[in-house]
Design a protein around this nucleic acid. Structure first.
Lengths: 223, 223
DNA sequence: GGGGCCGGTCACAAACCGGTTACAGGCTCC
DNA sequence: GGAGCCTGTAACCGGTTTGTGACCGGCCCC
């Protein structure tokens, strides 16, 4: 599990890096905005910690840049009391924030919660019931069948549903997690993606047994 | 999702209540400390907004009382610049704070972030007496009967009534909470919705036993 | 008794929703 | 530059949900 930490305060950066390292995470460090963006593109970390005040590009700009190409969980580090910053960060698609100063224990707890929510806590092939997802190969295997190749979006959708297997997931949330649409609204995309995914994974796409329509969203049925 | 708002300033209280109501939250209002504590024990809200300056018990005392029995997220409303208050509140276990004056937008953003952080899932089946509501499945179950499917509006109405089970809820308030109409006035909608809901949940829709007409509104009868 | 108000009921129209088909632009890989 | 895939967009269909207008009967008050 890779975590990118971007902060220009060397002491804090090292403290965080140490904490996360101890906890078993692989840590990538950046001292300014451009470095953060570059590292992000190179290494595609599983989670990003962003300080707001950084030279080069500030945290907002980095967050925007990241959101343009990825739904990776982003946690902002803010100075307590900067109301506007907070609202702006959350508006830009940050998933959580942490007020400085914070304890390492708090950081870890929040980080884990965030990873759990994003459904990426294990990048080993996700599985539930008869469904197994291989993120490396971009394939899904149903029961004893042959692996089926998925596209990027199909994989992401299935991953989200799998992370909440058995429970219905709100369309709104799916839109946000798969496309990063802030306000949702565009149901057509989801409709279409679900349709395409069903064609691939359902024995009878007209009567879905796995990817079922639920009130206000979809859910993955596992036995 | 129930939010308890405690503030002795009636204008501010109503503004907040309106904002949250529009955003789909169920709002409980308290004008002083003791009322807040009592409401908290009665209704077990999912989040609490506390003003610091209140008659009876002040925000600190209420916060302490709440913390003695629950980990529910608490957000304090503070006057900008009162550092001491802030530190004290956070020391007492408050989770976040908001400086007055604040915009509704800010309030909502912070509140959502707090709920998200607290990991509150809003799919816990609401229940009272023989009535159980499943927000994920959009169903209601009466006693031992089979779950009945509800539409979005029916669910919202029932949720409002359930949150005030046993007490009559003003038509005006229902209109605002279910449709977001600010001026109410449109009783026909409510009439119709109640009718449709009764058809689904009453054994004899002509003689309602659960969803009763009450003075100036409706109420849910629980045994 | 008559009019106004209110809640309940009915019937119909409008809006919405999910599934489906079709097509076009963009991208990658030969 | 062309083939093939991936993604986004539009249009259509049938079913459900929601909004609207009309009517009825009870109640209260003048």
């Amino acid at each position: 599990m890779k975590v990118l930490i971007a902060d220009d305060d060397a002491d804090l950066r090292e403290l965080i890096a140490f904490t996360l390292g101890q906890a078993g995470y692989l840590v990538l460090k950046a001292a300014d905005g451009p470095a953060a963006v570059q590292l992000f593109e190179h290494e595609s970390p599983d989670l990003v910690l962003l300080d707001i005040n950084m030279p080069g590009l500030n945290g907002f700009q980095v967050c925007e840049a990241i959101r343009r190409r990825s739904q990776v969980p982003v946690m902002m580090l803010t100075v307590r009391g900067e109301e506007e910053d907070l609202v702006r960060a959350l508006g830009l698609g940050a998933d959580d924030y942490l007020n400085k100063p914070f304890s390492p224990r708090t950081l870890l707890a929040r980080l884990k919660a965030l990873l759990r929510r994003a459904g990426v806590e294990n990048n080993a092939p996700l599985a539930a019931g008869r469904i197994r997802l291989d993120l490396e190969e971009f394939t899904v295997t149903i029961g004893e069948g042959a692996p089926v190749r998925l596209t990027k979006l199909e994989l992401r959708l299935l991953q989200m549903l799998l992370a909440n297997a058995g429970h219905s997931v709100n369309s709104e949330r799916l839109l946000v997690q798969v496309w990063g649409h802030r306000s949702g609204g565009d149901r057509q995309l989801l409709k279409q993606l679900v349709h395409r995914l069903r064609q691939k994974i359902e024995t009878d796409p007209a009567a879905p047994a796995l990817l079922r329509t639920a009130a206000a969203g979809y859910k993955l049925v596992v036995d």
